[in-house]
Design a protein around this nucleic acid. Structure first.
Lengths: 128, 128
DNA sequence: TATGAACCTTCCTGTTACTGGAAGGTCAAG
DNA sequence: CTTGACCTTCCAGTAACAGGAAGGTTCATA
């Protein structure tokens, strides 16, 4: 498929997809006319990149995650180390998002119009 | 407190804290010697910024969240709209992180050394 | 067959959100 | 009174894109 369809299916702008090729994250085929030609596997990777980027992982971290995902010898120790590290990070992110969610919900439902110094939520914002 | 301590307590580099002042996210006092002087409230905001940035919110989104947090008239409709939108985004992020977590755990525990085409996890990576 | 819209290509510039470093002022300790 | 660890501003560089120009491709329609 062409870049437009890959863009539609992955949610990433075509510009970004070309950029990811520039920095070596993906390597699509080329058709005879010179157009990039993406397969289902490429779209999987692009969706994966779209997600992990939007969740606050850097491009270099995404590169590691992709390598993990592509690595043929998954049993190797360092690959497992990277995965374990990422798991810890993911758990932290989930915890922080949950707290942020709780805080926002308080802001909307509980704290309707109170002046700031009286509001106990202000403290919660910075804890953890 | 000086910027060094604010940096230590918030987890943000001093450089970044100065940048956030440049773009108007925070407004610390100044001591007589010209040094920036941060209060507990500033540190709260900085920790908040540190978190929400690392969770994939843009600086402009963080500015909205901060405004929400500072707004004296929290009952206003548009403030509630912004909060509701952010809550939806947060829920999506939590779902995606949970899926990513599951996938990584499979990669580490279940899929030890299989060749790629045989591994059912590859499909999971792009769904949702 | 041609012409126009909707694709695609590369290349170059601009933006966002920092990051590093130079040049120099401030402060507490020895 | 100097040394080292702070702090200041300013300017340049990087990361991760985004916008747009200039031009080739494809396909439906006149």
């Amino acid at each position: 498929m062409n870049i437009g369809e890959a863009s539609g299916r992955s949610g990433l702008p075509a510009k970004t997809i070309r950029y990811y090729e520039d920095i070596g994250l993906i390597r699509p085929d080329r058709s005879d006319n010179g157009y990039r030609d993406y397969g289902a596997d490429d779209v999987h990777k692009l969706r994966f990149l779209h997600r992990s980027r939007s969740l606050g992982f850097s491009v270099e971290e995404c590169r590691q995650l992709l390598a993990l995902y592509e690595d043929k010898s998954r049993a190797s120790a360092d690959v497992k180390d990277i995965a374990a590290t990422k798991l810890t990070e993911i758990d932290r992110k989930i915890r922080e998002l949950t707290e942020l969610r709780r805080t926002l919900e308080h802001l909307v439902h509980a704290c309707h119009g109170n002046e700031r110094p009286d509001c106990p939520i202000l403290e919660e914002l910075s804890e953890g």
